[in-house]
């Protein structure tokens, strides 16, 4: 189960001249179990900060983040995180990267390899188990990163523009794979993107943030049936609506 509640969350960073930079302003958001929610916003709107706060990588100073009734107060293996940058440990093979979290839990090698292999299979990388990250393409690295996050069986998966650095073709393929994985594992997913196309294709709901400081501008339900066809007329219509909505209400003043 993965119920996430964010309650009047604000955040600011100190600046060198002594003032503070407000990045998030009273964010209230509920993410329901098994839901796929995208946070959409332009760069610098604080969406990465929001995700890092949920992950426990930044200290919550104002407001509350509650996962399944418990306050988030630091990194927590119940939360899986896929970073925007390549975050695989280059000195570990694919299988040892995937099994890292289980190794930290003290699970014996054979058992953790079995679990890791299952998740590598899920991202179609079984035959690369002995490879090192430097031998993989960008898309493959991010798939291993997804497998590594899933191996600990977290209740929620946080993804920070995981496909942002990939070419369009690879990105489309990985989006489709991610939806397959989501169908199979039924995780709650909170996904950050600046691409309207990506958000419409993936999400049940899109949360649109305003630029600096980040406030929730609109929450849009995407009722398109799955599997979605991104070349279809319906898809184009929804994408246009979302774009319109953003332009009318949430653009930079």
């Amino acid at each position: 189960m993965g119920n996430l509640q964010i309650r009047s969350l604000s955040h600011s960073f100190p600046r060198d001249d002594g003032t503070t930079l407000q990045v998030l302003d009273h964010i209230d958001l509920d993410v329901r179990d098994k839901e796929f929610v995208c946070i959409l916003g332009s760069s610098g709107c604080g969406k990465t900060t929001l995700l890092r706060l949920v992950a426990g990588l930044e200290e919550v100073r104002s407001g509350d983040i509650i996962l399944n009734g418990e306050k988030i107060e630091g990194p927590n293996p119940n939360i899986g995180f896929v970073f925007q940058e390549y975050s695989l440990f280059p000195w570990r093979s694919v299988i040892d990267n995937t099994a890292f979290g289980l190794e930290m839990k003290g699970i014996p090698r054979e058992e953790r390899y079995k679990v890791a292999e299952h998740y590598l299979d899920l991202v179609h990388l079984t035959q690369f188990r002995e490879s090192y990250p430097s031998e993989l393409s960008g898309g493959m690295r991010q798939r291993v990163a997804v497998a590594r996050a899933l191996a600990l069986d977290p209740v929620i998966l946080l993804m920070d523009e995981p496909f942002g650095a990939l070419d369009a073709q690879t990105r489309n393929m990985l989006q489709k794979e991610l939806l397959d994985i989501w169908e199979k594992t039924k995780k709650t997913i909170l996904f950050i993107t600046h691409s309207v196309d990506e958000a419409v294709y993936l999400s049940d709901r899109i949360v649109v943030l305003t630029p600096r400081p980040g406030r929730i501008c609109k929450i849009v339900d995407i009722d398109l049936p799955r599997p979605r066809n991104r070349t279809g007329a319906e898809f184009a219509e929804v994408r246009r609506e979302v774009l319109d909505l953003i332009n009318r209400n949430c653009s930079i003043q």
Binding site: A55, P75, G80, F83, F100, G101
Partner: peptide
């Protein structure tokens, strides 16, 4: 990013972070 990725995977103690990361 390696340290943060490790923390998200349950490797949070200094001793483990030094040894494994």
């Amino acid at each position: 990013i390696y340290v943060e990725a490790a923390k998200m995977l349950g490797c949070t103690k200094s001793r483990d972070l030094i040894r494994h990361i």
